[in-house]
Design a protein around this nucleic acid. Structure first.
Lengths: 149, 149
DNA sequence: ACGATAGTACTACTACGGTAATATGTCAAA
DNA sequence: TTTGACATATTACCGTAGTAGTACTATCGT
């Protein structure tokens, strides 16, 4: 399952993945129940999606009696980053500030959110400063702890 | 052309839209040329896409001699916001700070970007403070200047 | 007048997300 | 032991992005 194309997830697939990420494992019935009403999916819809998703390498399953227990085969971080970066690159030319600017004017943001954003940026500035002091360029952070298994 | 589903744009459609946003107007040949090599699309591929996109209300055209001159029918801001908000809501539960946190650890961000982010947040805090003082709730900013025509 | 060129229109096909009905198999209870 | 509940497997259909060949048409240069 190549990490490529990890940003192409439809809404339903995403919701299913979220159930699996949350629970670790889940049978078709459990996923189906977790998705609940609004709209009410047919049981077989979920089963079919899960099989298609397994073919794409997004999930895996093991048999437990008659039932299949599914689990995610890709980490939430990978998907989140993949999709976020895709939008960032395709729509905002990779400029995080441009994207944030759009989102700040497009929706309500609570004071807590703003404070948290500020904290993140200060934190990042601190790290950047330190790295720049130690060595210029060749910054090798992010130990890629985004593996599963 | 309903604003709904404005976040479902494939990569090629997006690239075509970007050409139109940049130039205001463009013939099929111009779009095709602007997309250039890597990969080299067939001329008819672009023409077909443009026709499909017109059917979806993304672009419009007028005839100029034999040729069609296309222009965007939706503003870049609408699409950018639509797609960014979609990812934000679906993947990060609407939390901007969570998304930024992911992106900050996922990629390099220049000092200038960080400074700009900081500026944006300060700016936004200032506005929020003012609004809160004037009235609590019922904040009616964003004059929605995202129309085209 | 005529053929080359440059347009659009039509048609077709693959891939995939979404959606689900139907078929088939299996286990357990009556 | 038959039946019903529950499970997966198979099949099918729609929409749409992507990709492009082929057909038709208008115009321009000679």
């Amino acid at each position: 399952m190549p990490r490529s194309q990890l940003h192409r997830l439809g809404d339903l697939q995403l919701r299913i993945m979220q159930v699996l990420w949350q629970r670790g494992e889940a049978t078709v019935a459990e996923v189906h129940a977790a998705l609940g009403a609004r709209p009410r999916f047919a049981y077989t819809t979920i089963a079919t999606m899960l099989r298609k998703m397994e073919a794409r390498g997004l999930v895996r399953h093991r048999a437990q009696g008659r039932a299949f227990v599914y689990r995610a085969a890709v980490a939430e971080r990978q998907v989140s980053r993949g999709m976020a970066e895709h939008v960032l690159d395709r729509l905002f030319a990779g400029s995080l500030s441009t994207m944030v600017s759009h989102l700040l004017t497009a929706r309500e943001v609570s004071a807590e959110e703003l404070a948290e954003l500020e904290r993140l940026i200060q934190e990042r500035k601190r790290i950047s400063r330190k790295e720049t002091h130690i060595k210029k360029g060749d910054a090798r952070h992010e130990p890629d702890s985004s593996r599963l298994d």
